[in-house]
Design a protein around this nucleic acid. Structure first.
Length: 555
RNA sequence: GCGCCCGUAGCUCAGCGGAUAGAGCAGGGGACUUCUAAUCCCAAGGCCGCAGGUUCGAAUCCUGCCGGGCGCGCCA
């Protein structure tokens, strides 16, 4: 019995009761859920449906609960239903029905937790999109970790999702980058508005190695070579860094491509047709103030140049024309001023900002080193790059520690702590469960203990309190995945693995001996516990996979 | 000034309108002759920033205030 099936049974009980008593079934919700009470005295699962319905139909909640309890108690697998407090329904399951979950999980394998609740949704997820003028640094990594996990979660919930990296390869930043690389190649100091840092010199050396005669070219041509080749090398480095971080984008989208393909003119046509363009002071404007922006935005400057904002608008319209009904942007708190203007772009294009565009603002990552805040800036020499972070702590620890907290809260990463590779890193705690389950499975195989076929599995033997808790934790997993996907909150998954599943397994392990000891004969209980062990292994592996973290067999 | 986010145990943070608000770390006390002690158990630690409101019920929703972070370009 899974929580989802029990919730269905609760709803079915409500339907049965309502038709029996001639109550208005329109008052019933389309779906309902059951909760897991913290207090074990409140049963295995609890429903608040009576409390929610009481007011709608004008019956006292406890009376309604009594009727529901009577119906629900007839459900196979339900052992008892009690009414508590103002009208909670506290449900206990038969141990056999509860224990069957281990089999459900093992048999589903990698599919356990995957669903189709978001089927049919075509979602575009854009994140990182760091300028290709420097390495990916710590300021981007939170989005790399969270965004990529979100992509995996949405896919697991059945959405048709594409992750995209928008490459700002047009405009003045990339020109400054080119001039900086050229200057480095000539051994000149960094231009006033240029990029410093070691990586510029590295790139200059690589360009020189591939084009030994480049400095003999006229200044403009040489600069173009350094700009284009430098850009190519920088982008390759960015892709490699993210690849090491287990982040791979479905689409690398070039801003220059928007300019070259005429997509910007096309976007202007779309916006003009919707009636939101006007000219003023020689510039072309989008009237974003019609839709909540605090000022109108320039699309084409007085000098004829298209603004970055024009490209943003064109990119959005392009995404929509590629069939994405939901365009999700993951931005740092320093970009929250973009919310209104991005939403206004959608509205000006004739879309519904509430339905077609979703902007997630996450707070910044603060770096502390020996008590001193470290300023993160691409222009400062002293930056921590993604590569350095991965070198120091590994992809697993880095991704996990970035994904495990809510993006609404600023995250303080202490360089001293995460580079110390200390044992108190929570990712090890979760991975350790997976390693333990794998170790038990190996030892079981050596002893000749196997789960046996599904028919011989005796789920009612999994009646120990710790087994029950573990089963319930395993049962929660699918709902955790869908909630994390729908709420765009990967940290919920990490939290579940770390605070719910992992401790439940350790307590089970400590209290319930899985393998036979010494000359002990193999019993059905050993086999049943092995099912539970392997089910845990499945969920740990599936969950860590969605976080982009490995689940080692040995540690 | 305006806008977004945050304020929960000493520290770092979970908490989907539900029952007695949770965890990790730090500090105190325990548990390894047999499956990985990177673990587990016990005790201790709280005006959920403050004040109102909404309702059967508020850490959660609404309003105001206080404190902190970030942002408000014909920059990218």
């Amino acid at each position: 019995m899974t929580p989802a099936k029990l919730a269905d049974a609760v709803l079915a009980a409500a339907h049965a009761l309502f038709s029996e008593r001639g109550l208005d079934r329109a008052a019933l919700p389309a779906t309902t859920t059951v909760e897991r009470p913290r207090n074990p005295e409140h049963g295995d699962y609890a429903s608040t449906i009576a409390l929610q319905l009481a007011k709608k139909i004008g019956l006292p909640p406890r009376e309604l609960a009594a009727g529901l309890a009577e119906q629900l108690a007839r459900t196979p697998g339900v052992k008892s239903v009690e009414i508590a407090g103002p009208g909670f329904l506290n449900v206990r399951l038969d141990p056999a029905a509860a224990g069957q979950l281990a089999r459900v999980v093992v048999e589903a394998g990698r599919e356990y937790g995957r669903s189709d609740v978001l089927a049919g949704q075509k979602v575009n997820l854009e994140f990182v999109s760091a300028n290709p003028t420097g390495p990916v640094h710590l300021g981007h990594t939170r989005w790399a970790a969270v965004g990529d996990s979100l992509r995996r979660l949405l896919a697991a919930a059945g959405a048709d999702v594409a992750s995209e990296y928008y490459i700002n390869d047009a405009g003045s930043q990339i020109d400054r980058f080119g001039r900086s690389v050229l200057a480095a190649a000539k051994g000149e100091p960094t231009p006033e508005d240029g990029y410093g840092g070691e990586y510029i010199a590295d790139i200059a050396r690589q360009v020189l190695a591939e084009h030994p005669a480049v400095l003999d070219l006229p200044g403009d041509e040489a600069e173009a070579v350094f700009r284009n080749e430098g850009y190519r090398l920088m982008l390759a480095e960015i892709k490699a860094s993210l690849g090491r971080f287990a982040v791979d984008f479905d689409v690398w989208f070039s801003e220059r491509g928007l300019h070259d393909s005429g997509a910007i003119e096309h976007a202007l046509d779309t916006l003009r047709a919707q009636g939101h363009l006007y000219e003023s002071e020689g510039a072309l404007w989008l009237r974003t103030t019609d839709f909540g922006d605090d000022k109108d935005r320039v699309l084409i400057r007085g000098n004829g140049e298209k603004t970055y904002f024009a490209a943003d608008a064109a990119y959005y319209i392009n995404k929509r024309e590629r069939g994405f009904e939901k365009c999700v942007y993951l931005l740092g708190a320093d970009h929250h001023g973009y919310i209104n203007r991005l939403r206004a772009i959608a509205a000006c294009a004739g879309d519904d900002p509430d339905a077609n565009i979703e902007i997630l603002i996450g707070q910044l990552v603060n770096l502390v080193r020996e008590g001193q805040p470290v300023r993160m800036s691409k222009r400062a020499g002293n930056v921590i790059t993604l590569d350095e972070l991965v070198d120091a702590v590994g992809t697993d620890a880095a991704r996990y520690s970035l994904a495990r907290s809510s993006t609404d809260s600023p995250l303080t990463l202490d360089i001293e702590v995460i580079t110390r590779r200390s044992n108190d890193n929570p990712v090890f705690y979760v991975q350790y469960v997976g390693a333990r389950t794998a170790s038990v499975a190996r030892n079981a195989a050596e002893l000749g203990l196997t789960r046996g076929d599904a028919e011989s599995f005796r789920p009612e033997l999994l009646a120990h309190a710790k087994e029950n808790e573990l089963l319930k934790a395993l049962g929660d997993y699918p709902a955790v995945v869908t909630a994390a996907a729908e709420l765009r909150a990967p940290h919920r998954l990490a939290h579940y693995l770390e605070k719910d599943l992992a401790p439940a397994y350790h307590r089970f392990y400590d209290n319930c001996r899985i393998l036979p000891m010494g000359d002990e004969e193999i019993t059905d209980l050993h086999r049943a516990r092995l099912w539970l062990n392997d089910a845990t292994r499945t969920v740990i592996a599936n969950g860590l996979e969605l976080l982009g973290v490995s689940a080692p067999e040995r540690m």
